[in-house]
């Protein structure tokens, strides 16, 4: 598990997660839509077969077997959306937000004195313009 689990995850959620991952895996293997739909229906039938199992020990075993089966058939190149994490175009262009410059160390800022002097001046002018246009913000009580 690549994240810190901070809550108890119930059995049904685990089953739903397995089902979704299995569907995504099928989608990666069967790349034509009709073929994928056919397999998805068969997969749904397999899950539905055991939906009324009341004995949690049996249900847990089924879940473990399902996870193992999925792991043994996982696609070596799963489909990814280009702009999502893991996708080919994910975070291609990183634009640092403007406020990052305010967190520069004074020594770093000293390399570009003119730029930062102008920047401080502009910030001051912007605050003045804001207060002139929208008024001063109300005093915050502690």
């Amino acid at each position: 598990m690549s994240f810190l689990q901070t809550e108890v995850i119930c059995h049904s959620r685990k089953v739903c997660s397995l089902y979704k991952r299995a569907l995504r895996n099928l989608e990666s293997w069967y790349d034509r839509r009709p073929m994928y739909r056919y397999r998805a229906v068969l997969l749904r039938a397999r899950f539905d077969e055991n939906k009324d199992v009341k004995d949690l020990r049996v249900a847990q075993q089924l879940l473990d077997d399902g996870e193992k089966e999925l792991f043994s058939l996982i696609q070596y190149q799963p489909k990814k959306f280009p702009l999502s994490p893991g996708g080919v175009a994910y975070e291609r262009e990183v634009r640092a937000p403007d406020w990052v410059l305010d967190y520069w160390h004074p020594w770093e800022k000293a390399f570009y004195p003119d730029y930062f002097a102008k920047r401080e001046q502009r910030k001051k002018e912007y605050v003045e313009w804001w207060e002139k246009t929208y008024g001063k913000p109300a005093e915050q009580g502690h």
């Binding site: 293997w29 069967y30 009709p34 073929m35 056919y38 043994s72 058939l73 070596y76 190149q77």
Partner: peptide, 19 residues
Amino acid sequence: VNYNLNSLKYYNSVVFSGS
């Protein structure tokens, strides 16, 4: 539509070749 992928039958060889 109902074709069984042979890739799944020879999973290890396919992963080996595809990687």
